[in-house]
Design a protein around this nucleic acid. Structure first.
Length: 454
RNA sequence: GUGGUCGUAGCUCAGCUGGUAGAGCGUCGGAUUGUGGUUCCGAAUGUCGCGGGUUCGAGUCCCGUCCUCCACCCCA
């Protein structure tokens, strides 16, 4: 036997049925992006490794897929270097390219490289796969799609509002009930200052990000192990357990963080965003959640996350503001804010809640069933006439038995067939059969078109 | 990267304390040479993930390896 075919770990094939469902998601997201004036770009699957390395932290570098140089990639390598067996060092010499890890860094590269052609603020969207050499598990893959929309080159909090409106519109169209969790990186900095551990900001945020998952005790334990002292931990506790409406939470925060300039700035930003949402009649519930940190270190202002209300799953979208994204590529001080929709998780939500619509538009409407070569040629003109009317039409390409051809229509859920035989050709008609009811009737081309269009 | 788990027909799986490989679904053919979705009859298909070991004999036991899935780290 031949070798059994397989695909790489963490990758997936998508069947026609899955693709119509996935396209429903992508098309919905795309149309909302366009509604707000975002323009699509694409960037290559491969970037130069120098573009990617060092942008995602040490862990991130390990998760990059590297592409081996073409040709004799060992030509410049000495025996000594080979014997050293230093994989990291060696890979730097034999790999110049890598698969993109997200869409944000390539976007930053794109902006810097094309700054002369772009007019700012630049609103772009991008829907492409990204790759991570992670170990796959439930809902996590080595190849997956991101749907990003970013506004770059504007500090206005109006942009944050726009992203919230986009989130609202997308999930409204998909009929998913969601709640937006919002936080602000500056408030987190303020908190770190307030408890006297400003240097430990990253440790603090990644720890409290897990509060839902591992509970407050374990978070405290982790913070202790990271070197946060007990006094600081004590000051942190009331902040982790803030209760009440957004306004109430903000009031309490103000009372605690009044000495921190950053913290107060974050609070003001949030107040402005809440106010704008009210003016814009945003209806989705938006909840201030201080435990929302998101792993990404480049966020500097608002942090957003979207949770589905009717199904137990992690966040289905996220985003935030980042200042100076393009700084690493030599262009300082460009601020942006973006949102990313997690297509795979949205798929799971729609699947679990059975919210996928019946999509029949792209399905074949009628199949020509034929008995021989002559009938095949006869059908050709009919099929062309139908296609001219925008009716999805197929001709069964070989004169197999009727049983087989009808079985094909059945499996493919084609609602109508046109049976073409000698009798039909003599009369210049076809036998029109409704697969659901079994009714059939000989009719002319004009009548056929009329029936299929109604 | 750490820990666990799985692998038998195209798919889902059964296969006892070791004794020559099984079912359902699907596929193909026929009942029905111009009528599908229902029914009935028949047929084809396997290096039992791969490599080694124990044994007279291994799908079954042992070791290794790869793969799948799950959890952790991290992340979408």
């Amino acid at each position: 036997m031949n070798q059994k075919p397989s695909i790489p770990k963490g990758t997936r094939d998508f069947s026609p049925e899955e693709m119509t469902k996935r396209n429903y998601i992508f098309d919905t997201i795309k149309s909302v992006f366009r509604l707000y004036g975002f323009q699509q770009i694409e960037t290559p699957a491969m970037e130069n490794l120098s573009t990617l390395l060092g942008k995602y932290g040490e862990e991130g570098d390990k998760l990059l897929f590297k592409v081996l140089n073409s040709g004799d990639f060992l030509s410049g390598i000495s025996d000594a270097e080979l014997l050293e067996r230093n994989a990291a060092r060696l890979s730097g010499k034999i790999c110049e390219k890598g698969l993109r890890y997200d869409l944000t860094v390539p976007f930053a590269r794109f902006v810097v490289q094309n700054r002369d052609k772009i007019s700012f603020p630049f609103k772009r969207y991008q829907i492409q796969p990204v790759w991570r050499a992670d170990r796959p598990q439930k809902g996590r893959y080595r190849e997956f799609y991101q749907c990003d929309a970013d506004i770059i080159g504007s500090n206005s909090l109006f942009n944050e509002l726009e992203l919230i409106q986009i989130i609202e519109e997308v999930f409204c169209r998909l009929k998913i009930n969601v709640c937006i969790k919002i936080n602000n990186r500056k408030i987190l900095s303020g908190i770190a200052e307030y408890i006297g551990e400003p240097e430990k900001l990253t440790d603090i945020t990644t720890a409290i990000d897990k509060i839902d998952k591992i509970g407050i005790e374990n978070v405290n334990e982790e913070l202790l192990s990271k070197g946060i002292n007990r006094e600081a931990l004590g000051k942190l506790q009331p902040l982790l357990q803030l209760k009440g409406s957004n306004q109430e939470k903000l009031a309490q925060l103000k009372a605690l963080l009044f000495e921190s300039a950053a913290g107060m700035k974050g609070i003001t930003e949030l107040e402005t965003i809440f106010d704008l949402c009210e003016k814009a009649n945003v209806c989705v519930p938006i909840e201030l959640d201080l435990t929302l940190a998101r792993g990404l270190n480049y966020y500097t202002g608002a942090i957003l996350e979207v949770k589905a209300l009717d199904v137990e799953i992690g966040s289905i979208s996220g985003g935030g503001r980042y200042d100076n994204l393009t700084g690493v590529f030599g262009w300082e001080g460009v601020s942006g804010v973006g949102v990313s929709f997690g297509a795979d998780r949205i798929y799971d939500v729609l699947y679990q809640l059975q919210l996928f619509p019946e999509i029949s538009a792209e399905q074949t409407k009628i199949l020509f069933v034929v008995f021989g070569e002559k009938e095949l040629k006869f059908s050709l003109q009919w099929a062309q006439a139908l296609r001219k009317e925008n009716i999805n039409t197929e001709i069964y390409a070989e004169p197999s038995k009727l049983k087989k051809q009808l079985g094909y229509a059945d499996n493919k859920k084609i609602p109508f067939v046109a049976i073409v035989g000698e009798n039909e050709m003599q009369e210049g008609k076809i036998t029109f059969k409704n697969m659901a009811t079994g009714e059939q009737q000989m009719i002319s081309l004009e009548e056929l078109i009329q029936r299929l269009k109604s």
